[in-house]
Design a protein around this nucleic acid. Structure first.
Lengths: 223, 223
DNA sequence: CCCAATATTAAGCAAGCGTTTGATTCAAGC
DNA sequence: GCTTGAATCAAACGCTTGCTTAATATTGGG
């Protein structure tokens, strides 16, 4: 029967999202899924392979949709997409899923945050391997969209952009609490555009003029 | 002797930064510190209290410096700081430490990332309590600097800004690898300004014009 | 010098971990 | 109706976890 296998994946995904990969035991998963402790090792071989499959199952369609969306923007614009379009293609496939199905979407958001923080080294290794092609594709697209920026500056800002998305995913509940419920993540396309606006604003920024706006940097007392 | 206590804090900080709080055992810490397993419970009472103290010890001076810096910017500008100054005051106390002492600085960066991702709920609870005053102070300063933005929009963008900094902290090593060493975090004030430029660019952005730049959103094939 | 307070030690506790095993159930194929 | 292979099960394996205990070592003040 393949039903138990699916049940294990669904339950593991939910628990990983709620409490993190390292703090969820096989017994937590199997008892919540109504299965035997041995079923994970029977169906997947080990806990690590289960983890890998949980992430792969969600990330693959997202990365496919990202690439698809980027390609269509490029075709639509006659070869080169602008930075807003590139970032929308990167962000929206995640946000869309999150707002379409609030409960499983929240799981996904929190799963994403585990991927982007390289705390769990083996996890990052597993997942990033699948994302490498997509990352490269988006990097060259960004370089074409912003030809005046040096390559390493592109890297920095893409890094910042990833941070915005990952953190939005990771700490959405925290923001909801801090803002007394005024901010939540249920309005998909709006949130995508809000994210894209912020990130693109960052990409268009000039360091020199920001430095000028800061002005004189005060001395601080060193303890 | 207070020497063992200090040694435990230093060692725990290093190991937490390298491998995360949950995956480091008391025996890992004590053996690396050359102390007995029981010493943690003797000096701190429990593992959780050790964790709390590790974070508090680093975050308190940073938050103090953030507030100090913001106050001086406000005095210098006659009451109201601009968004670049506010974000510099938020970001620089972290970045400065990181670049001043690369090894312990890297620890700090990765520690910060653990704080900002609310994966470990109890950890977030412990640490955020100490940060609440600082957060409130910066939120009202940001509202004064950007009076045209609605309050919840300020929340969103502050949330994004935190994400940029946290992710820069968390995955600095990852960026170093992806960019073949072109990007690293050793140039303190430069990096602070780079971060401030990106974040401030995001704060100044208009959602409507970003939405316009995206144009027609292509349909994607749903699997 | 001695005594009390502080600090460190080895040993062990119960509980939980991922994984393995060998028996049992179950649904088809001949 | 028996056989075969896949799926599930209870039980146990060896190991690590955070924490406790009771004995020992170290220290500084009277």
């Amino acid at each position: 029967m393949t039903e138990t296998r699916e049940q294990l994946l669904d339950t593991a995904e939910r628990l990983f999202a709620e409490r993190g990969v390292d703090t969820v035991s096989l017994r937590d998963i199997t008892s919540a899924a109504g299965a035997n402790v041995a079923s994970v090792n029977y169906h997947f071989g080990s806990k690590e392979k289960l983890v890998s499959e949980v992430f792969r199952r969600r990330l693959q369609p997202i990365n496919d949709e990202r690439l698809d969306l980027l390609t269509r923007f490029e075709q639509q614009s006659g070869g080169t997409a602008n930075i807003e379009q590139i970032m929308f293609a990167f962000v929206h496939p995640v946000i869309r899923r999150m707002s379409a199905e609030p409960e499983s979407g929240a799981n996904l958001m929190r799963l994403m945050s585990h991927v982007h923080s390289d705390v769990n080294a083996s996890l990052a290794g597993i997942v990033l391997h699948d994302m490498q092609d997509m990352i490269e594709r988006f990097m060259t697209a960004a370089q074409q969209a912003m030809p005046s920026l040096p390559k390493d500056e592109i890297y920095w800002r893409a890094h910042f952009a990833t941070g915005v998305m990952a953190h939005t995913a990771a700490a959405a509940g925290l923001l909801h609490a801090l803002s007394d419920g005024a901010c939540d993540v249920s309005c998909g396309e709006d949130l995508s555009c809000r994210l894209v606006a912020f990130i693109s604003g960052g990409f268009h920024a000039e360091i020199a003029s920001a430095r000028a706006a800061i002005g004189k940097i005060p001395e601080v007392k060193q303890p």
